[in-house]
Simulated scan of single mutants.
Amino acid sequence: MTSREQSPIGAHVPVAGGLATGGLKYAAEIGAEVVQVFVSNPRGWALTTGKAAEDARLRDSGVPVYVHANYLINFGSPNADTLGRSVESVRHALLRGREVGARGVVVHTGSAVSQSYEDAMAQVGRHLLPLLDEIPDDGPDLLLEPMAGQAHMLCATVQQLGPYFEALEHHPRIGVCLDTCHAFAAGHDLTAEGGVAAVLEALVATVGAGRLKLIHANDSKDPCGSGRDRHENIGAGLMGERPFAELFADPRAAGVPFIIETPGRSAEPHRADVDVLKRLRGVPAPVAG
């Protein structure tokens, strides 16, 4: 047995019927120990209010909760309407995250679209930093999720988190959500000998220890460096099982929750992915020599 804190394993869960009613039921079906939810339409700007009873059930369930903000948010956008809506959407996600007892709110790091990288990063600082100052002591952290490396992305590799953290003045309420499929697509070869250790070492060197707060555990349909964000079930893609076992074994990821966002429209494939990760969690760390 190891004395290091064990990472809980779970999934992004559907919430039809209510955040707690639907989400916790699905979590139980697949054996999830931690959940991630949407608190509004992930592909729209509508800001929905919660139901107090559902919020309380989720908050008091004892299951760690994370919120994923909507996919349209982009603080690097040159479009004033998109930028304004992004501000309000993140503010709403942080508020709702507090109401459900979430530990973190995940937001994609965005794209410069048609403007310069420098102008886009300046916008990140001007518009996102004030939202971080609004987070109360009992509110969730904001977790930055690097992207898969498509054109004009502000952040894909872990090294590119450096300028992002600088724009946000290394605020104490920001953390990192590392998506394994995104990292692989962006060029981090997690399948190479020492590849996982190299990514975690680079992450700590770039943003400091303790900033990794969540791991999106997804295999990849496409090869390393493809720039394509297409998730696959654990062990069924081009990454295979070994990188996940190495993540569990690395002390820099100790205790960090693993959330699957893998294909499947029913509980069966997600239960299988959770089971695989639980098995890999128990694989002993390799002995250096």
Rank of each mutant, 00 (worst) to 15 (best):
V34C: 08
R59E: 10
C155K: 05
P263E: 06
P146T: 01
A198M: 13
L95I: 12
G210M: 11
S61V: 06
R96N: 12
V124K: 00
V287E: 14
T49H: 14
P257L: 15
Q150M: 14
Q159C: 12
Q160E: 15
V100K: 04
A205V: 12
A122F: 11
V176K: 03
P257V: 14
L280Q: 06
G62N: 03
L128D: 01
R126W: 12
R211Q: 03
D55L: 15
I234K: 00
G162N: 09
S220N: 08
A192G: 11
S266Q: 14
S116A: 10
H182D: 06
G149I: 10
T82H: 09
A209K: 15
S61C: 08
P163S: 01
P223A: 05
V176T: 04
N74H: 05
H12P: 00
Y117N: 12
E29Q: 15
A253I: 10
T49L: 14
V35H: 00
P140G: 13
G125A: 11
A197N: 14
P8M: 10
P146F: 00
F244E: 01
G235K: 07
T21I: 10
L58S: 00
C224D: 07
I135G: 05
D219G: 10
M121S: 12
Y71I: 06
Q123Y: 01
A209M: 12
P163A: 05
A167N: 04
L203E: 02
T2L: 14
D60Q: 15
D219Y: 07
E118Q: 11
V100Y: 09
V34F: 08
H12C: 01
V276I: 12
L200M: 09
A80H: 14
A272W: 02
E246A: 13
V176S: 05
T49R: 14
L72S: 04
Q115H: 13
A93F: 11
H216P: 10
E99F: 07
E145I: 09
Q150F: 09
V256E: 12
M153E: 15
M153P: 11
V196T: 00
A202F: 13
S7W: 10
H182F: 07
D133P: 06
V124L: 04
G10R: 03
V15N: 05
V90I: 15
G237D: 02
P243H: 08
G10F: 08
C181W: 00
